[in-house]
């Protein structure tokens, strides 16, 4: 492989994991955009998506095996629905009663919810690694010297589709406009007859569903998951959201991809053991220079 080819190959690998970070980052940013809460439980919601997908796969009849499109659709549908509902439930039970309390109370609660979920996951699925079946076994597309596996293109394309749908929803539908309005001025939105509590639920629903889809992709891509995998991936996706400018939806997508690529390059050129260090180091440097992220905090959505 020529140096350029290696570089591009690492970028591709980074793009794939970056798309997953972006999906998770959207959940952080949508929730922050509307109630200025960093939902620390989001990492656990994300990995729950992987566990639900795995459970669904295990429950499927043999005819719907590996490589069957319907099996995949079902896994994604149920993982997204399950995580979406989990997010809404958490908001209703843990955050809504604290709406008028100091913000710190909510933040600490979020950390608590994160620990509870982690332990619930461990109780249900055990403390050991769970391995994923290998989807799209031998399929890869090769372009000259570099190759893109079928799994990688699946992740990139399906995340892109989800982000485009989200973008359309936020920009074009009335509910999306209400969401932008409420994140800008909650009281004014209430005066317009917008039920802001419902809008907050919608944010949790969509953000958590996207996180769940990301989690399932993560499981399929890395092949094994454990109950605490949500923690690190969650922190990274959160940094991606900050990198793009927290509260900003396009920023979360951009931040996720940027972080994934930095990490890919770091893993390729230094050592994959150091990829986390590399990612956070660049983040620190970037934030020292642009504290409000790439797209700035004044473009709340």
């Amino acid at each position: 492989m020529s140096p350029l080819e290696t570089f591009i190959q690492q970028l591709i690998n980074g793009l794939v994991i970056g798309m997953i970070y972006a999906l998770i980052a959207l959940g952080y940013t949508m929730v922050y955009g509307i109630i200025q809460l960093i939902n620390f439980a989001h990492g656990e919601i994300f990995i729950t998506g992987a566990f639900i997908g795995l459970a669904v796969f295990g429950a499927l009849p043999g005819a719907l095996g590996l490589g069957n499109l319907w099996a995949l659709v079902l896994m994604f549908a149920l993982a997204m629905a399950g995580c979406g509902l989990l997010g809404v439930l958490i908001e209703r039970v843990a955050y809504r009663p604290l709406r008028k309390s100091p913000r710190l109370a909510c933040l600490i609660t979020a950390i608590g919810v994160s620990f509870i979920l982690q332990n619930v996951l461990m109780l249900i699925w055990g403390p050991v690694d769970k391995s994923f079946p290998v989807f799209f076994k031998h399929s890869a597309l090769t372009f000259g010297a570099f190759r893109v596996t079928f799994m990688q293109s699946f992740i990139v394309i399906s995340s892109l589709v989800m982000m485009l749908v989200l973008h359309f929803f936020i920009r074009r539908t009335m509910l999306g406009k209400a969401l932008r309005a409420a994140s800008e001025d909650m009281t004014a939105a209430r005066l317009m007859g917008i039920n802001v509590e419902r809008i907050i639920s919608v944010c949790f629903l969509i953000g958590s569903a996207l996180g769940g889809a990301g989690g399932l992709m993560y499981g399929m891509y890395y092949n094994t998951i454990t109950f605490h995998d949500g923690y690190l991936a969650g922190i990274k996706a959160f940094t991606a959201a900050v990198l793009g400018g927290i509260g900003n939806v396009p920023g979360a997508m951009l931040g996720g991809v940027a972080l994934g690529m930095m990490e890919g390059l770091g893993a390729g050129y230094l050592s994959s053991e150091w990829k986390n260090v590399f990612a956070f180091l660049i983040l620190i440097i970037l934030l020292l220079r642009w504290p409000s992220g790439i797209l700035g905090k004044f473009r709340h959505e």
Binding site: M174, A189, G193
Partner: peptide, 26 residues
Amino acid sequence: VVQVPEGRRVFRRLTVFENLQLGAFL
């Protein structure tokens, strides 16, 4: 019973047209 709040409080990052649409949200 509809209020025009003090300080106008239009949705600054939404277009004029979208602001009007949101007025008719219900």
